[in-house]
């Protein structure tokens, strides 16, 4: 294993004394979303307002009378995290202008949604908020299905995955459509910063989150979050599976800053996707020819990204991270 957790940055004395996403949340054992949130909030810091959509994160973090949040947090509904964040951002902006909010205090306004809340039901609100150029960061924690309601397929569920509403059966391989490419759809709004990240690569995630929060204008982080329950893998594999997804090119780490795409890990030799797929029960029914088809698609997509990165003025970062 060559990737680093960055020893210098994680000296115990540098660690925060208090988690902003607190222990005692009701996330399942090995929850990739909870892990991602912890890391993201370390970067965001206390001057943050989180607008959460309905879903796992909302349920596990706010069981009245308890809350896992140590930053101000609001949940309104499922389909409107971006719209609520837009209102929060606009409200702060005008109150600041009118002298009723500290002038020099920058607040990270975060819209937080799962893949269903982003790629399906919250799609319109997201697009609208990006287009209106609100100064906020939209974070999609993608666990590739509606986990909170019981593992139903979303448009972010990958081809071949078995879910409760795209079950593998005698005449079906499960999900029959391709995963909606949210980062690219978001990037098409020409916002200043879009990035994919995964808590298995915390340094990469932290770097991207910091840039997203610091950037003025709309920014988007698409965070790959393994789900032991929904993906049917042992809870201790959550980090390893994220790593495999990246190494196999299933979930490439890249960022698009000011329109230029940069592949954060250029891998000349990727792991075969089967090594990723075989770790999870949701793919256990796939036949070799299905795996071949998935490999073909992954290769195609990865090559497209490499090509784009090369076209975008040598934006490939070959340094280790």
């Amino acid at each position: 294993m060559t990737e680093q957790t960055g020893r210098a940055k994680f000296l115990p004395r540098h660690l925060p004394s208090r988690e902003l996403f607190a222990e005692g949340h009701r996330g399942c054992q090995g929850c990739g979303e909870a892990l991602a949130l912890r890391q993201l909030l370390e970067v965001a810091g206390p001057d943050t307002i989180v607008c959460s959509c309905t879903g796992c994160v909302e349920i596990i973090s706010s069981p009245y009378p308890e809350t896992a949040w140590r930053v101000p947090w609001i949940h309104v509904a499922f389909e409107n995290a971006a719209a609520v964040a837009a209102g929060v951002e606009a409200g702060i902006k005008i109150l600041r202008k009118k002298g009723r909010y500290p002038a020099d205090r920058r607040i990270n306004v975060i819209a937080l949604a799962g893949d269903g809340g982003t790629a399906d039901i919250g799609f319109q609100a997201l697009s609208g908020a990006l287009e209106r150029w609100h100064d906020f960061t939209y974070i999609c924690t993608d666990n590739e299905a509606y986990m909170n309601t019981g593992i139903q397929r979303s448009s972010s569920t990958p081809y071949g995955a078995s879910t409760t509403t795209s079950p593998a059966g005698k005449i079906s391989i499960g999900q029959q459509t391709q995963k909606k490419d949210m980062p690219m759809i978001v990037a098409a709004h020409d916002i200043p910063y879009v990035a994919t990240c995964c808590p298995s690569y915390p340094l990469d995630l932290i770097k991207k989150a910091r840039r997203a929060f610091e950037t003025i204008g709309p920014t988007y982080l698409h965070v790959f979050c393994p789900c032991p329950v929904g993906w049917r893998h042992p809870s201790d594999m959550s980090v390893e599976i994220g790593r495999l997804a990246v190494k196999a090119g299933v979930f490439p780490l890249f960022e698009i800053a000011d329109g230029k795409l940069k592949l954060n890990r250029k891998m000349d030799k990727r792991k075969p996707v089967v090594e990723y797929l075989e770790t999870q029960g949701r793919f256990s029914h796939l036949k070799p020819e299905d795996v071949e088809e998935i490999q073909r698609r992954v290769d195609e997509n990865y090559q497209r990204l490499v090509h784009r990165a090369e076209c975008d003025a040598g934006g490939i970062d070959r340094s280790r991270h």
């Binding site: 307002i49 607008c51 609001i74 309104v76 509904a77 389909e79 409107n80 719209a83 609520v84 964040a85 837009a86 209102g87 929060v88 951002e89 606009a90 409200g91 702060i92 005008i94 109150l95 009723r100 319109q124 609100a125 697009s127 609208g128 908020a129 287009e131 209106r132």
Partner: peptide, 21 residues
């Protein structure tokens, strides 16, 4: 906020009102 739907209009109103506007 000239928004993209009434649903977002009321959602954004909730957000703005929740910060004291």
């Amino acid at each position: 906020m000239v928004v993209e739907s009434e649903h977002t209009a009321m959602s954004a109103c909730c957000g703005a009102s929740a910060v004291g506007a």
